[in-house]
Design a protein around this nucleic acid. Structure first.
Lengths: 365, 365
DNA sequence: TTGAAAGCGGTACCAC
DNA sequence: GTGGTACCGCTTTCAA
């Protein structure tokens, strides 16, 4: 009947079209294309020619339905424009690509409902893993919610990976890739203290967010270690954005102007803080020192370049993917019983990057 | 690599499991879940209960094979950590989500081979559209390559969208979403000229990249309009990164130190330039003025805040997705039938955002 | 209203 | 080496 496939939207060419046109069976075409089966040179030539003529590509949906298919990782992120997250995503994507995996990115906008919807969506897609990025509010509910995600994904043959989030308690099938958040803050605060600062304005981030809590805790511990009283009045919580940094410094300058340094929860907050200090005629670091956290490119683009805590975001992404890939290949051929309570928890190190934003206090004692 | 389905109830539940357990037919389950068909309340209840019990979600691959399926857009980006691109991606993603579409992100790392591989991969996935982001090198080859992509995608029922790239010539089925690049540069340069600057160091970006060419051209036109001689010796090409900005300014300070302003190709380049000037003891904007291009968050995080050209990246993303969605629903602007060589080309405006990095020249003439 | 069955595009096992 | 063909999980006629 119809020798030619309609040119327009009549649908893309199928393996059957190729088979017919090459005068071979679909099985043969499949073999040629998969390349994992002995095929005569003649056949391969014939098939490949038609494939090129038709500009044929296999239907990924059909392929994964039938068994094969490209493993896919889903990255769920709050906000794709956040530099730190972007680096994690880059790490995941890069490592995925290296293995021929595909990666999906979805943004949750910090909305739990949307997060749930996305997790389910990814489950439908049959992804090999779902990577959840970024700090979280570790209420009792968080654990329950994540545990549910983990089991749900696990039951579907997928896997949950938490990056930069608190690990799950108990016997939950999820992998956590984390960094030593608290130690980073400890080291950063120590740096300030050893430079002689005693009155430090601390901007940990959103109260309740695990990363902020960890950073605050680390700082506090450093003060203790140095025998310096820690003034809660110098702690101001708020979002991880420059506006908060700006506003917080302005307010502090009004309320408790005797601080000689600012310990910001992120580089972006530090940027805002720097703006505010300058707007008030204060010089950085001559009058006030500032340090950040994250070590995103912004840190070295500011003037003075920001001393901050380096977090290996990109590597975390890579590690996360590797963990998933390994476990996938590690799964025995007989389909080892799942649900094995493997709550793997990987922790990467952080370190202080000293640049130009810290000087010994000078303003006054 | 062949994946074998695990035996037993391991693996994810299927529609058949649900049907069996609810004592109904698969067709009924399908109907309940799709919700686009009259079903008795009793049946719905029974099915939904089992769905919840089993934590069942439909297999997206099977669904799209069978006809249904969630439309998906693929965003192909050079580098996910670029702020400008991230904003476009955010726009696309947001608009996609709004319509219940899914979005995939792939990174090409500026590698043509990888780009090709990704386009084919997306074609396999049967995506509704492939969005290619960012400037390109418009050699003769570019047109051919893109035209091939466009037709290939079109034949598969998909569609190519170019964002921030030169439109395709001739009768090619692709949509281009662009911004008025050259005018932005013209306006930006005019701003400098009207402030009195005459010797301006221009850092357009990579030679050959269309965005860089447009920005340079716009600047040049402004000089002409102002009757100011344009010195090619003050133009330095290079990558869109801060290192180039830094190096270029250092070099210029050595070779042609009489410039009073820097017209950077992007905000990031401007950041690098600013660093270099300061490293040489020059003040911004007192000694040298600087302007950027893009208006990413960095622009307002620098001190002084950067005067730059605002490019509506996020909106471009939104517009791109809308264009695809419309054409898919046949609601296209002109309501034309597909297959027609409709090279839609949408252009968004840009404008100068005046902040604090420009002052009339003072150093000396 | 509900059920049976025919595909959707591929893969892989089984004969020849 | 190749060619049949029985699925994969779901949607959608077509009957009942």
């Amino acid at each position: 009947m119809s020798q030619r496939k309609a040119i327009g939207d009549a649908g893309r060419a199928t393996i059957r079209d190729v088979a017919e046109r090459a005068g071979v069976s679909v099985a043969s075409v499949s073999r040629v294309l998969s390349g994992n089966y002995p095929v005569s040179e003649e056949l391969r030539r014939r098939v490949m020619k038609v494939v090129r003529d038709l500009d044929y590509v296999t239907n990924a949906h059909a392929r994964s339905l039938a068994g094969g298919g490209t493993p896919t990782v889903a990255i769920l992120i709050n906000n794709i424009t956040g530099a730190a997250f972007a680096h994690v995503a880059k790490g995941v994507e890069g490592a995925a690509t290296l293995r021929g995996w595909l990666s999906l990115v979805g943004t949750t906008g910090d909305d739990p409902e949307r997060e749930l919807a996305l997790v389910n969506l990814m489950r439908q897609q049959g992804v090999a893993a779902v990577v959840l990025l970024g700090g979280a509010y570790d209420f009792e509910e968080y654990q329950l919610r994540m545990a549910r995600f983990a089991r749900s994904l696990d039951a579907a043959g997928s896997h949950l990976v938490l990056v930069g989030r608190p690990p799950l308690e108990g016997d939950v099938p999820a992998t956590t890739v984390d960094y030593d958040n608290e130690s980073g803050a400890y080291a950063m605060a120590s740096h300030l203290l050893s430079a002689g600062h005693r009155r430090v304005l601390v901007l940990p981030g959103p109260a309740g967010l695990t990363t902020a809590q960890g950073r605050l805790k680390g700082a506090r511990r450093a003060f203790e270690a140095y025998g310096v009283p820690f003034d809660p009045g110098l702690v101001r919580h708020g979002p991880y954005d420059d506006e908060h940094g700006y506003a917080a410094v302005k307010a502090a300058l009004h309320d408790t102007p005797d601080f000689t340094a600012v310990l910001a929860g992120t580089d972006v907050v530090a940027a805002g803080a720097m703006q505010a200090l300058r707007a008030e005629g204060l010089r950085v670091p001559d009058d006030v020192s500032i340090v950040g956290y994250d070590d995103i490119p912004l840190a070295s683009q500011l003037t003075p370049q920001l001393t901050t805590v380096h977090v290996p975001y990109e590597e975390m992404g890579r590690v996360a993917l590797r963990a998933v890939a390994d476990r996938r290949e590690g799964t025995g051929p007989a389909g080892r019983r799942k649900g094995g309570g493997d709550g793997e928890h990987l922790v990467l190190g952080t370190h202080v990057v000293v640049r130009d934003s810290v000087r010994p206090p000078r303003r006054h004692t």
